[in-house]
Design a protein around this nucleic acid. Structure first.
Lengths: 330, 330
DNA sequence: TTGAAAGCGCTAACAC
DNA sequence: GTGTTAGCGCTTTCAA
C-alpha cells in the first residue's frame, strides 16, 4: 500500500480509502490510485484490514453436510440476502456430529465472524457456552429449540412428523410406520420421528413400526433396505413416512422393483421437498419447510442485528410452518 | 493474550506457543496457560496470528454450485485430504459464471489463501492473470485445459462425450442425440457435447440431434422437457446422452410417464455417477469421473506443493480417466 | 478531501 | 524452555 501511495503521490490513508466504497476520495485521486495499484500488481490484504478495523467481513455458518439440497437452498438464501451487505459467508460442515460441530465452532470463532449461524438446536455444553460467549449474534436454524442460545429461524421437526400422521389418517391409513431418525447424530430427523410417534400415541395407534437405520446422511440405498425390512416385519403396513425424500425415493424404487404398488399396497411420504420428490414417477408426497426462505430470513435477521435494528436484549424467534405437499404416493 | 500471560506468569510469546502444536512448552506451563485462558474466556485471534505469521491457514476453492453431488464429493475429498495439515478450505460458489468467478477469485485472493483451487479450465482473461500472479499454487480441476495456468487434476470432458458415443455404437444404436450443454456458462457440459458431436462426425453419423436447454445447473425438469422435444423433432432417435444424471433422470421419468420404453424405444445415458442414477428404476447408464478421488488428489498435490516436494517450476497434470458405467437404460 | 501518528493482537528472530 | 524486541499491513482518530 505504501508503494501504491508513493506511485500515486498520496498517503497510504488515501489509498486505503480509495479501495472502499462510500469514502471521501475525489474521482481523480481514486482513478490515479487504482491505476497505480494495477500497474504494480498490488493485491489488497484483507487480513491486515480485518485486524486493524476489528471487522472480519464475514458471517460463519455451520451446516451438517455439503451434499444436501435442503441445506444448499438455505445457504443460497443466506448468500442472496447478504449479497449487498459486503458480508461473505464462511461455511463449515459438521458431518451431522455435535462433537465435530464443537470443534468447528471453536475454529470459526477464532476467525472472528461478525455473526454465527448454526444448523439445529442441539449442541454440546461446551459448544453452547462458546456460542453464548461469542459476543456476536447467534442464530440457530432448522429447529425450534426450547432453550435457544440466541435467535432462531426455524420450525418444529416434531410438528413435521405430526403433520404427516394427520395427513395419513385423513387419507384413511391407520397402520403407520417410520423409516430413519435412528441415531443421535441427526437430531432433527430424530425429532421428526418423535413427533410422528407421539402423534400415533395420541391417536391410540400402533407406534412400533419404526425402522431406524444407518448413519446420516441417510441414503436412497438405506431407504430401500429399510423398506424391505418394514414390509417383511409388518406386512400389513399401510403408509410409511421416511426421514427424508432421499430415503423415500429409495423406498419407492424398491417397491417398484418388487411390484409393490404405491400407494395401493403401501403409501410412502418423505420430507424436504427435494426436486427428486416432484420429478419421480410417481411423485412423492413430502413436507416443505421453506429451506430457501429460512436462508433469506436468517440473512435479514443478521443484518438487522448488526445494524442495531433490534434491541440487543431481544430474542428474535422466526417460526416457519412446515407444509405437507400431497402427491401420488399417498 | 497479555492478560492470559499475566495470569499464568509467563510472557505472551509462551502463551502463543502454548496454543500451537509441536512447540517447545513444558507440559506444566501449557496446562497453566490453557487454564488461565479458560478462566478468562480468552479466544485466540487468528486474524492477528495470520497477519503476523503471513500464513492464512486456508486453501481457497471455487465450485460452480453448492447444490451438486459431484462437486460436493470433490470438496469432501479435499477436506479429507487436508484434514491433518491444519489447512482449512474456504469455499466460494461461481454459479457457473466466469464473471462471477473473476469477482470471487479477486475476493478470495485478498484473504491470502496458501493455494487456490478452481473448477474448470476456462476463465476470463483478468481472472487468469490474477491466478497466474497470485504467488501461490493454482490447481484447475474437472477439466484438462490445453493451456493450464498452473497445475491440473482433471479429465477431458470431450473424452467423456466420445466415450458415450462409443458405448452407444457398441450397443448397436446409430441415431444418437444429446441433451444439454447449451450455454457458454457450463463450459464443461459444452465440452462433453462437443466431444459427443465430434465422435458422431468421425463415424459419419448424423450430428444434428441436439437439444440445448436452459441455464445451468440443468435440472430434472429441463431434462424431461428436452426429452419431449427430442422425440417430437426426431421420433426415430435411438439413444440420448444427457449432460448430467439429473437431466437423464428427468428424461427417463418423462418416458415412464408417457409409456415410452427405456431402453427398448429409446436408450438414455447420463453423466456424473450420482446415487440417483444407481437407485432409479431402471438404473441409468452413466459416466464416472471419480469426483471424490479428484478431491483427494488435489489435496495431495497442494500439500506436496506447499511442502516443496515438487520443483517450483514443475507443472503437475494429473489426468483422470472417465469410465462408462453400463446399466439398464442402454 | 487528505494526511500524520498510533496501534490492532499476534509471531519471527534472536538471545539466554 | 522461555523472554525481548520489532513489526506484519492495514485503519482509527484526530487534525488541517
Amino acid at each position: 500500500m505504501a508503494d501504491v501511495a508513493h506511485r500515486a503521490n498520496v498517503s497510504t490513508m488515501t489509498v486505503s480509502r480509495a479501495f472502499k466504497r462510500d469514502t471521501s476520495v475525489s474521482a481523480d485521486t481514486r482513478d490515479r490510485i487504482l491505476k497505480a495499484a494495477e500497474e504494480l500488481g498490488y493485491v489488497f490484504d484483507s487480513i491486515a484490514a480485518n485486524l486493524s478495523s476489528r471487522r472480519s467481513g464475514f458471517v460463519a455458518a455451520t451446516i451438517p453436510s455439503i451434499n444436501n439440497a435442503n441445506f444448499a437452498d438455505t445457504v443460497r438464501g443466506m448468500t442472496e440476502g447478504l449479497r449487498d451487505s459486503g458480508l461473505e459467508i464462511l461455511l463449515g460442515f459438521t458431518d451431522y456430529n455435535v462433537e465435530e460441530e464443537e470443534r468447528l465452532v471453536g475454529q470459526l470463532l477464532q476467525r472472528r465472524p461478525e455473526a454465527i449461524i448454526v444448523t439445529g438446536g442441539r449442541h454440546t455444553p461446551r459448544c453452547r457456552k462458546m456460542l453464548a460467549n461469542a459476543g456476536v449474534p447467534v442464530v440457530e436454524t432448522w429447529d425450534l429449540p426450547s432453550d435457544p442460545i440466541g435467535h432462531v429461524v426455524g420450525f418444529s421437526n416434531a410438528e413435521a412428523g405430526r403433520l404427516m400422521v394427520d395427513h395419513f389418517v385423513a387419507r384413511g391409513y391407520s397402520k403407520l410406520g417410520f423409516i430413519g431418525g435412528d441415531t443421535s447424530r441427526d437430531t432433527r430427523g430424530l425429532d421428526r420421528r418423535r413427533g410422528f410417534i407421539a402423534a400415533l400415541q395420541d391417536r391410540g395407534l400402533d407406534a412400533s413400526r419404526v425402522i431406524a437405520s444407518g448413519v446420516p446422511p441417510i441414503s436412497m440405498r438405506e431407504g430401500a433396505a429399510a423398506m424391505v425390512e418394514m414390509i417383511s416385519r409388518w406386512p400389513d403396513t399401510e403408509a410409511v413416512m421416511c426421514v427424508s425424500d432421499l430415503s423415500a425415493f429409495g423406498a419407492l424404487m424398491e417397491c417398484v422393483r418388487r411390484g409393490i404398488r404405491v400407494p395401493d399396497d403401501v403409501a410412502i411420504a418423505g420430507f424436504g421437498a427435494y426436486d427428486l420428490a416432484e420429478q419421480s414417477v410417481p411423485p412423492i408426497t413430502t413436507i416443505d419447510v421453506g429451506a430457501h426462505e429460512i436462508g433469506i430470513r436468517v440473512a435479514e435477521l443478521v443484518l438487522d442485528l448488526l445494524n442495531g435494528r433490534h434491541a440487543p436484549e431481544d430474542r428474535v424467534v422466526v417460526g416457519m410452518t412446515p407444509r405437507v405437499i400431497v402427491r401420488h404416493t399417498t
